[in-house]
Design a protein around this nucleic acid. Structure first.
Length: 952
RNA sequence: GCAGAGGUACCCGAGCUGGUCAAAGGGGCCGGACUUAAGCUCCGGUGCAAAGUGCUUCGCAGGUUCAAAUCCUGCCCUCUGCACCA
């Protein structure tokens, strides 16, 4: 009955490992398939999101192996990062210890699931064996001019004397001491990613990413074409440079706004009555993180700076403001205010009584009027204070303005990106040390490549009391000699953003154990040709990680390290994993699972439940460990894959999991029972082989397409129900069964590999299924199965409709019905159907010539039949309003039956016992209409493939 | 606000190059067989009607068509991402 999942699964996991079946090497004679899942951060035990991710990946890796591909399927850990530092502080240990412990936990969980990784390639980024290559590549980038050191603001807590990450800032206050966070400028390291902005944007068109991911990346790169315009300041030598995408509105400028941090502000207000108000605004803004500046800022505020700027084309003087809505880091930190055609500028102008000057109209010849909401589309220029501009439209207008600016030296056309250079440095311990040395004499000098790695010290104590970066106070780490002059110098204490680690790990997997270079290019060129073939992960990495990795691959390509420029081919973003949580309908909010069955803490109504994203905050998580313990890894994998297609959201359901467990048991039962079947061949053998061919073909298509739900439905559900039908119909041929089960075991392997391997073993399959390629069934595809499949379909349909009719008939009878009489279509109807089908193949024009054809038939002479002949013909060829004629709706198999003059009565009589059994009656007899009594007047409803059925 | 995905029977979920669609598959529920019994397993039912191919359904309202879950238009709702971006 049930089986010991743990025993079976552990056994095969051990054997797979002993036989090293998942270990691969470059083999140019075989097509490769690189299957990769997004790099996990080891935070302890594996969670359900991981299980979903890896179950998809493993199924695909195993499938592609069966398809004869050389499959690279690696696993490793993105193990640098702040959580380990915090954990270390909590237990007064070292992040290294925490990390190692977490890695062994998640790895054990993964191994228990039976994922087919090539574990020899495993690495963790927090080991010197990996991060030394981070440093090496960084030095190469430095040489190539991709690295830059400049000032940038960080979140700073004065009390704790430390940098804060965005997530350590709560309500603009330090999470530990509660002091207000300030922005502080520090010298930091940047990678000049913007050098690749155009390529990153343009190649998006070529990549096989989901559309939404592409859109997100395009938005993130945010290329906008526009103009840089210089506004001279009255009575001052200074100039404000402003970027705009709408140079065509330049004649509508009525003010200019600077970001409060803009260096010109100080200069303009210094010593004037405006200084105080500006200082206040600037301080208020500096207290906010950029995130808040952008997201929380509801009220637009500004202060006048008391000076005026000159519009370079009109010569008009307009007031200069500082405004909190201008972001210093985008563009030039200065905006030209056009309240006539920009809603934000309009609101600002209204608030501060600034004039509004519309300069564009929708239709040629219109008069410009102030509007609210403003007209911000492209329009025709009007009200220009210079001639030649009025009457220009859209892009032409923009270009005209830009060329005037360029001619007069007061501006130029330009392209602006939202994408910024990659701020690489973190003032943290648990990351790759940036291999730089500060020398009093030589300045900042790179570490010699031969001196790498710069290792993180292990003798560091972590505690909440010591704030700041422990590296900065570790003398052994700090002391260095200058590679240039040999004098005593200080080591850089900044470490790298952990996105750096994950930006090339997929290339390292191609050559994980190389200890003389990051990777040998021939290995990467083999495995990454055309990119990673299948990359599976969450949508949350759609922008940052995927963009950094793309940049990195291009940068190393330009260093000559690899040929490929785009790291990823097909990207699949798995959907959300949901689980029930208490939900209040009237408050429209979810609560922690502790509230299950209780009242809404907000309004007191009774809570219902709703499926929401699994997460710690609601506590609606499911532990994979518990589920594996209870049901075994195969069942959990089956549930995960059958629950939803990879991209779709998925709801956790205990009862569905139990149902999948039952399904597993049924499959096991089928294989088990097959061993003691007495062999006897019959027609059903062909039927089963026909079904096998059909199922296998559809399965391969679905799997190739990563439609795992559909694939699993075929392999774990349809294959079983076909098997059951075969057995019910008396099929029991040993060699047919052996063939069916062998192929079935193969199809079971990607989703539920352990039990499939067990079956393979029972069946005496050669070697291990895990390293097997899919059986060749081309001998099956060369045969035509439609007749036998259609015949069986006919019987099934017959029984279905008979069952339906029987229940109706029973209502008209006092006594139980025991006999069924089936009158099959008279031969003239069958002939007519056969002719119609054959004629339709020859594109006979039924509309035009159908009637004539009928009238010329010999049977049409029979006047009693004429009406019925006509009716039959119509339902064969043209059908009714709602239903088309049978020649259009019959399946290929049904047409085959009709053309071959399928003998319905004899088929029914041959299977009469089975039919009688299925319907719970005593006898079944069948004859053609006219060959026996017309029982219950059913002769008239008989039709080819739809006989008249009577119960008595 | 912008962009993308979507709304299918009690629930989840396929279908959506128009007809073979009362709509696959699963869950749940109901009935039958097996069993001492529960469970497991097997068979069947699950819009209404009916000794049979009929009727009303695929977010709502229209439209195209001989024919619409499928195509078009408008509206409503949900989810995801982005956003004072100049």
């Amino acid at each position: 009955m049930s089986y010991d999942a743990h025993e079976v699964e552990n056994k095969w996991q051990r054997i797979w490992a002993e036989d090293r079946v998942f270990e691969v090497e470059v083999d140019i004679s075989k097509p490769k398939f690189y299957c990769l899942e997004m790099f996990p951060y080891p935070s302890g035990n594996m969670h359900m999101g991981h299980v979903r991710n890896y179950s998809i990946g493993d199924a695909m890796a195993r499938f592609q192996r069966m398809m004869g591909k050389n499959v690279l399927y690696p696993m490793g850990y993105d193990s640098f990062g702040m959580p380990a530092e915090n954990a270390a502080k909590k237990e007064s240990g070292h992040p290294h210890t925490v990390t190692e412990r977490n890695i062994s936990m998640i790895r054990a969980d993964q191994e228990r699931m039976g994922y087919s990784y090539d574990w020899r390639r495993m690495f963790a980024t927090s080991t010197p064996e990996y991060y030394r290559w981070n440093q090496e590549i960084f030095l190469k980038f430095y040489e190539a001019g991709l690295v830059e050191r400049r000032f940038a603001p960080v979140n700073w807590c004065n009390d704790c004397d430390t940098v804060l990450a965005n997530e350590q800032v709560k309500n603009n206050r330090c999470w530990r001491c509660g002091l207000e966070v300030v922005q502080k400028d520090m010298a930091q390291w940047f990678l000049k990613m913007t050098m690749y902005a155009d390529e990153l944007l343009e190649e998006l068109d070529e990549i096989e990413f989901p559309e939404n991911v592409k859109t997100m990346q395009r938005n993130w790169i945010g290329r906008s074409q526009g103009a840089h315009i210089n506004f001279e300041i009255v009575d001052s030598g200074s100039v404000i440079g402003a970027f705009t995408t709408r140079p065509d509105t330049i004649f509508g400028v009525t003010f200019v706004t600077l970001s409060p941090e803009h260096p010109l502000c100080q200069e303009l207000v210094s010593g004037t009555e405006y200084e105080e108000a500006w200082t206040e605004l600037r301080d208020e803004c500096s207290r906010m993180t950029e995130f808040e500046r952008i997201n929380m800022l509801k009220e637009k505020k500004g202060v006048p700076l008391g000076k005026f700027a000159i519009n370079p084309l009109s010569g008009e003087e307009v007031p200069i403001y500082a405004g909190n809505f201008v972001v210093a880091s985008y563009g030039t930190g200065a905006v030209m205010g056009v309240p006539g055609h920009d809603q934000r500028d309009y609101d600002f102008a209204k608030k501060y009584g600034i004039p509004i000057k519309p300069v564009l109209v929708r239709n040629k010849g219109d008069v410009a009027e102030e509007e609210n909401p403003v007209f911000d589309g492209l329009g025709w220029m009007v009200n220009s204070t210079r001639e030649t501009f009025d009457g220009l439209f859209g892009n032409e207008a923009k270009e005209a303005v830009i060329s005037s600016l360029e001619n007069e030296g007061s501006g130029h056309g330009t392209i602006q990106y939202r994408l910024k250079d990659w701020l690489l440095s973190r003032q943290r311990f648990w990351g790759t040390p940036i291999p730089m040395i500060h020398c009093d004499d030589c300045g900042v000098v790179p570490v010699n490549s031969s001196d790498l790695p710069v290792e993180l010290p292990l003798d560091v104590k972590f505690s909440w009391e010591d704030s700041g970066n422990p590296l900065a106070s570790n003398n052994k780490f700090l002391e260095a000699t200058c590679p240039n002059c040999g004098n005593q110098a200080t080591r850089e204490t900044d470490t790298m953003d952990t996105f750096y680690d994950s930006s090339w790990y997929f290339m390292r997997f191609a050559d994980s154990n190389n200890d003389s270079e990051p990777f040998a290019s021939q290995n990467v060129n083999y495995w990454l040709e055309g990119g990673v073939d299948l990359y599976i992960g969450g949508i949350e990495h759609a922008v940052m990680h995927l963009l950094y990795a793309r940049f990195f691959t291009k940068a190393t390509r330009d260093l000559g390290m690899n040929l490929v420029g785009e790291p990823f081919g097909r990207l699949v973003c798995q959907g959300m994993l949901n689980a029930p949580a208490p939900f209040c309908v009237s408050c429209n909010s979810e609560y922690h699972v502790d509230y299950f069955g209780g009242k809404c803490p907000n309004c007191g109504n009774t809570l219902s439940t709703r499926s929401v994203k699994m997460g710690k905050s609601l506590g609606n998580t499911i532990s994979p460990g518990d589920m594996v313990e209870k049901f075994g890894a195969d069942t959990v994998r089956l549930f995960i894959l059958f629950g939803a297609n990879p991209e779709a959201g998925m709801d956790w359901s205990d009862s569905a999991l139990e149902a999948n467990s039952r399904q597993m048991n049924q499959i096991i039962e089928a294989f088990r029972n097959a061993s003691d079947i007495e062999s006897k061949s019959c027609e059903m053998d062909d039927w089963l082989l026909g079904r096998l061919l059909d199922n296998r073909t559809r399965w391969v298509d679905a799997m190739n397409d990563v439609s795992l739900r559909e694939g699993v439905m075929i392999s774990h559900f349809e294959m079983l129900s076909d098997w059951q039908w075969y057995r019910r119909r008396g099929g029991s041929d040993k060699s047919t069964i052996q063939r069916y089960l062998t192929n079935w075991a193969e199809m079971l392997a990607p989703a539920t590999p352990h039990i499939a391997e067990e079956f393979w073993n029972w069946l005496g399959g050669e070697g291990l299924l895990a390293s097997n390629t899919l059986s060749n069934i081309s001998d099956l595809s060369s045969r035509n199965w439609s007749n036998i499949l259609a015949r069986e379909e006919y019987l099934r349909d017959l029984i279905d409709s008979a069952r339906n009719i029987k229940s109706l008939a029973q209502k008209h009878s006092e006594t139980p019905l025991t006999k069924m009489v089936i009158q099959t279509s008279p031969s003239w109807k069958s002939e007519l159907a056969c002719n119609a089908v054959e004629m339709s193949i020859l594109d006979f024009d039924f509309k035009e010539k159908g009637q004539d054809y009928l009238k010329n038939l010999p049977i049409f002479e029979n006047e009693n039949l004429r009406g019925e002949i006509f009716q039959t013909w119509m339902s064969l060829t043209s059908g009714t309003k709602k239903k088309r004629g049978k020649i259009n709706t019959w399946s290929e198999g049904q047409k085959t039956l009709v053309k071959n003059r399928f003998d319905e009565s004899s088929t029914i009589n041959k299977n009469s016992d089975f039919i009688a059994n299925s319907l719970g009656i005593e006898s079944v007899t069948s004859y053609r209409v006219g060959d026996g009594m017309d029982v219950a007047g059913k002769a008239k409803v008989s039709f080819p493939l739809e006989p008249g059925i009577a119960f008595i």
